[in-house]
Nucleic acid binder design. Structure first.
Lengths: 234, 234
DNA sequence: TAGTGGTCTAGACCACGAA
DNA sequence: TCGTGGTCTAGACCACTAA
């Protein structure tokens, strides 16, 4: 059997792909043994074709039952904004802007944003409350070069919606979390006592390879548990 | 050939995984025919093992040349074990097993593992040190039904390598983190004072839809910052 | 009981790269 | 020329589900 212009497992794969694209979710795909007979090929060849479609997320196998069209095209994991996170929890959250302004990047901010010390950065400090109780405050730093006139556009509650409007919503994020005791500033902004537990969160938001956002948040430890991006909300 | 407790292609896969993790990028992996002889299995079985590692992004095939360790392990979005996390940081970490045993699931553990209160669970408590300083302690709970005889197999340092050998390494995880103050137990196990900051971490490790692992860790807050799975180590 | 997917065998030929 | 991965065959037994 010479290597034809189209491989057998490719023929089978594309045949099945066409077949299932008009099928409703959960519908049964042809069985492996049925495809063997239909194409006159070996079982392994059919399995190779089906494997490809399974790894594409189009089909799912159910041992002893059959192969079926996937219900849910695989779950997208993208960084959640604070507002989205709060909505997933069913929380009623309000936001105060405490401070905005243009500044010069210090060493830490410059390194995180991938720019040079002294470059122009947008700074935005907000406090979020849940049922009127302070939950956290957040310092966001943005590369001003990437977002000219950012502060003139009127700041909404959700940073990510603003970035999304410019096509710059982070598609990936690097999060860091650590536990600490409240300092004077933390205690003041969050209605805590000095020495109460706080959760410090730092995020670099990325679009491809470029860093869009650096945010540093301080949460009242007793009022908040951080969920990882993979956590499925109830 | 009966269905052994560990599948052949899993054995081959994990053998190769261990083998290549210490290899530099671009190094050649064992050839398929070499693995056939080494394990006394058929070619298709070896290919199934290698296919899995390729789709994980650990290996890449080069037709007519061989199979090689991936240069740029694509941003792995799989949960890292503590051992892998420590290695990524370049830390020298030691592990003590403080307690092991079979117990009955309480309400919290049962709910997290998706089993019934009173079902048999494996409990394993370890303390990890970094340069001899206590870093954290971890309580792991496993569904005994899924891992019969788990405690009899000899417990290595890495839980995930043990799960991987059974083909049950988590492919997804739900992590939760919160900040708290050290209680008496925490202070005792981590050489802290009561009231020092601690980072509490809870993870449900999933393989597909089934929960394999529940772990609860307590980190000394001043000694550890948690990195999200997306964080690329330098 | 019949059918399904999961695993596994023991071969085969091909196209290609390196020596 | 030799070894590599890519493809393919024609079977086999298993555990499981559904009728």
């Amino acid at each position: 059997m010479p290597l034809g212009p189209t491989l057998k497992h490719v023929q089978v794969r594309e045949y099945v792909r066409d077949l299932i694209q008009d099928l409703p979710e959960g519908a049964p795909a042809p069985s492996e043994r049925g495809l063997m007979q239909h194409f006159g090929v070996a079982r392994m060849t059919v399995r190779q074709a089906i494997d490809a479609l399974v790894s594409e997320g189009l089909l799912e196998r159910a041992p002893a039952r059959g192969t079926f069209v996937c219900k849910s095209p695989r779950p997208v994991s993208r960084p959640l904004s604070f507002a989205e996170d709060a909505r997933a929890r069913g929380w009623n959250v309000t936001t105060e802007t405490l401070q905005t302004g243009l500044g010069q990047a210090g060493p830490g901010v410059a390194k995180a944003l991938g720019i040079t010390v002294g470059d122009s950065v947008v700074h935005w400090r907000r406090r979020r409350r849940h049922d009127d109780v302070p939950l956290c405050y957040q310092d966001v730093y943005l590369n001003e070069i990437l977002l000219p006139g950012f502060l003139q556009t009127g700041l909404p509650d959700s940073l990510y919606s603003l970035l999304a409007a410019r096509g710059l919503r982070p598609t990936a994020a690097e999060d860091q979390l650590s536990a600490d005791l409240a300092h004077a500033v933390d205690a003041d902004l969050l209605d805590l006592e000095i020495g109460d537990p706080v959760l410090r969160h730092s995020r670099r938001g990325l679009v491809g390879d470029i860093v869009i956002e650096l945010s540093r948040s301080v949460y009242a430890g007793a009022r908040y548990t951080w969920w990882s991006p993979l956590t499925v909300s109830p």
